[in-house]
């Protein structure tokens, strides 16, 4: 049995009219497109970072929110992609787009390896396994100095000319993130995604209905790794530098925290979560070097007081109000 972090938030379809969804999405799109026109370039760069980490957080949510498998290994999958992109371009002198493709491919393959090992477990055991696997990747990046540069990391060769400045890179990232988000949205709302949710809620029932549970989870994990790999490749272009800290546990933790803060099982909540956490990180870092403590305290507080996350909480409140309204209208 998979144990979700919190009670599943009421599902999206159950309460929102399609016209509302289209309206909100149009509004968000306009806001995202207009953003660089009003923000200074440093903030545009932070927004780019938020978009990239939203993809990573969503890739975690695909597994955690829909498959009921909370992972702590996605930072490593993400970072593996970053390492490959930078190694390919800076050390081997390959082309940047081949590097991006290879990075995503390697992340997907790594996710397949993780999946094969971890898919038979669930709950805390799954978490521990992905944690251990991710840390092995970290250990490898730290110690395999001849390839990864050890603690010094690797420096990239910079972005191609046409996306070199902050604003054009922001639009390029937006152009990638939008269809990727749409793809993940389609993925979790497809019949396959419904089956995943069935597995999350009752594995034994799905098994007796004749579904191949391990295969579904395997595909979900690999797809999730593919999306994390896209985020990692974007991060390589964004950061132009990779070191073991890109694959370390705190990366997985921060990304999971973003998914949880937004609301596990809400997918788009990851944008809210990534925005809040990255904004918090930037604000805190301006005053103190104690960001890890703040991250830890945030994690503890969210686990105690709001495990369903911001979007999850809003949905619960909305569905309560709707129930109240409908019972009033009946009276």
């Amino acid at each position: 049995m998979a144990t979700p972090i919190s009670q599943a938030a009421p599902s999206y379809e159950a309460r929102t009219r399609p016209s509302h969804v289209v309206g909100w999405i149009a509004l968000a799109a306009v806001a995202l497109i207009a953003l660089p026109l009003v923000l200074p370039s440093y903030q545009v760069s932070i927004t780019t970072q938020i978009l990239i980490f939203s993809v990573l957080a969503m890739s975690i949510d695909v597994l955690a929110g829909y498959g009921g498998r909370t992972t702590l290994g996605h930072g490593a999958i993400f970072g593996a992609s970053t390492y490959v992109v930078i190694y390919w371009t800076a050390v081997l002198g390959g082309g940047i787009w081949t590097g991006v493709a290879l990075g995503i491919l390697c992340a997907t393959l790594l996710a397949a390896v993780f999946a094969l090992l971890a898919i038979r477990t669930s709950g805390v055991y799954f978490l521990l396994l992905t944690l251990a696997l991710g840390m092995i990747v970290w250990g490898l990046c730290l110690r395999w100095t001849s390839v990864t540069g050890g603690e010094n990391g690797l420096r990239g060769i910079g972005r191609p000319e046409f996306i070199a400045d902050h604003i054009s890179f922001y639009y390029a990232v937006l152009l990638v993130v939008a269809p990727v988000t749409w793809a993940m949205w389609r993925f979790v709302h497809s019949p396959f995604g419904l089956t995943l949710r069935g597995i999350r809620d009752s594995e034994s029932r799905m098994r007796s209905l004749g579904y191949n549970v391990p295969l579904h989870l395997f595909i979900a994990f690999v797809a999730s790794g593919f999306f994390a790999g896209i985020a990692g490749a974007l991060y390589a272009l964004f950061n132009n530098f990779v070191s073991p800290s890109t694959v370390q546990l705190s990366q997985s933790v921060a990304a999971l925290l973003m998914a949880i803060t937004g609301g596990v099982g809400t997918l788009l909540g990851s944008f809210v979560g990534a925005t809040l956490i990255i904004a918090l990180e930037n604000v805190v870092s301006a005053f103190t070097a104690r960001w890890p403590t703040v991250l830890g305290v945030t994690f503890v507080l969210i686990m105690i007081f709001a495990p369903e996350g911001v979007v999850g909480r809003v949905r619960i409140l909305l569905s309560r109000r709707r129930k109240r309204q409908s019972s009033e209208s009946l009276n």
């Binding site: 979700p4 702590l72 890890p292 403590t293 830890g296 503890v300 686990m303 105690i304 495990p307």
Partner: peptide
């Protein structure tokens, strides 16, 4: 002090201890 708030919820317990680990590490660094 902390675990009693999340008793019985396995994943929340684990993630809470993870948060504590970050805090302790940082304190050690200070």
């Amino acid at each position: 002090g902390l675990m009693r708030f999340v008793r019985g919820a396995e994943l929340r317990q684990v993630l809470l201890t993870l948060g504590v680990a970050f805090i302790l590490d940082d304190i050690a660094l200070v």
